[in-house]
């Protein structure tokens, strides 16, 4: 009975989530309309019509080459993202708990954020050549500060009263962290992770393009050389689609599971 109710609740939440896709679709349609207007104003050469772009994307996917390139870029972006999530979270949590480390790391953070990703790409190219490493390292350096700051915020803004509560009921430091703090940190961490994932895809394609490392970036570079606007836009759309697919399959479900209580806290009618 309990299991039945739980699965029913899950189904209801899934249904609500899928239904909310209409709002997202409306937003996409708006962009499509603006795009179409731009196309009609400036012509085919500057901005290919959205439908033609979609057709080009479908053609690319159909020819079979696109899947491999998308898979390669996605794998690189995910590898970089995984690394930066791991390192950023660990370092951020450590710094959050240790004010001295935090004070030391702030200027480092400013420095890392101040150096443009393009500079890192150049350096990484020299260090690692046109390889997966170049892409991964560039992502790591450009996206880690985001995750780091998210984790630090999570630790610093946590409710210390709950820590005391857990301690009174006999939780040692490890269980206090696992049962009480981790949940509060994750609330701040997830928005940072979503940003970092988006930035990982962007940086991956940029690094591929500049380092001539193949993948979607390489294909984009070829389209640019041949002045094939439709193909270039098609690649951009495909990359965005890959990002959205990853975000909604990987991060959103975990987040939805962890943040169920927020939905319960919202008054009826304002479920978002």
């Amino acid at each position: 009975m309990n299991l039945f109710a739980a699965s029913l609740d899950r189904l209801a939440r899934l249904g609500r989530f899928l239904w909310s896709a209409w709002a997202g679709l409306a937003g996409l349609a708006l962009i499509g309309a603006l795009w179409q207007a731009g196309h009609e104003a400036y012509g085919d050469f500057i901005l290919t019509a959205p439908l033609d772009t979609l057709a080009a994307a479908a053609r690319l996917l159909h020819e079979g080459r696109a899947q491999d390139l998308l898979a390669l870029t996605t794998a690189r972006a995910l590898a970089g993202f995984g690394l930066c999530a791991l390192i950023g979270t660990a370092a951020g949590v450590a710094a959050g708990y240790s004010p001295a480390t935090l004070r030391l790391s702030r200027p480092v953070l400013t420095l890392l954020l101040g150096v443009p990703p393009i500079a890192w790409i150049v350096l990484a190219m020299i260090w690692f050549g046109p390889s997966d490493m170049t892409v991964a390292v560039t992502i790591l350096i450009s996206a880690t500060p985001l995750v780091f700051v998210g984790a630090v915020e999570g630790v610093v803004t946590r409710d210390r009263g709950l820590d005391d509560m857990a301690q009174v009921f006999g939780a040692g430091p490890v269980r206090r962290f696992l049962f009480v703090s981790a949940r509060q940190i994750s609330a701040q961490l997830f928005p940072a992770l979503i940003l970092a994932l988006g930035s990982a895809f962007k940086v991956a394609i940029m690094a591929e393009l500049l380092a001539n490392a193949g993948g979607v970036g390489g294909a984009l570079e070829r389209a640019r050389a041949m002045l094939d606007i439709a193909e270039a836009l098609a690649w951009v759309s495909l990359a965005v689609a890959a990002l959205i697919a990853v975000e909604y399959m990987l991060i959103r479900p975990v987040r939805a599971e962890l943040e169920r209580w927020r939905e319960a806290a919202a008054p009826w009618g304002v479920k978002r």
Partner: peptide, 26 residues
């Protein structure tokens, strides 16, 4: 021992049952 604080100090992400059961879980 146990303690009742001035503010309830319930974990907002856990149901009432999970909050009450927290010391038992520990």
């Amino acid at each position: 021992h146990a303690m009742v604080f001035q503010d309830p100090r319930l974990m907002p992400w856990a149901t009432a049952a999970d909050n009450i059961g927290f010391p038992l879980r520990l």
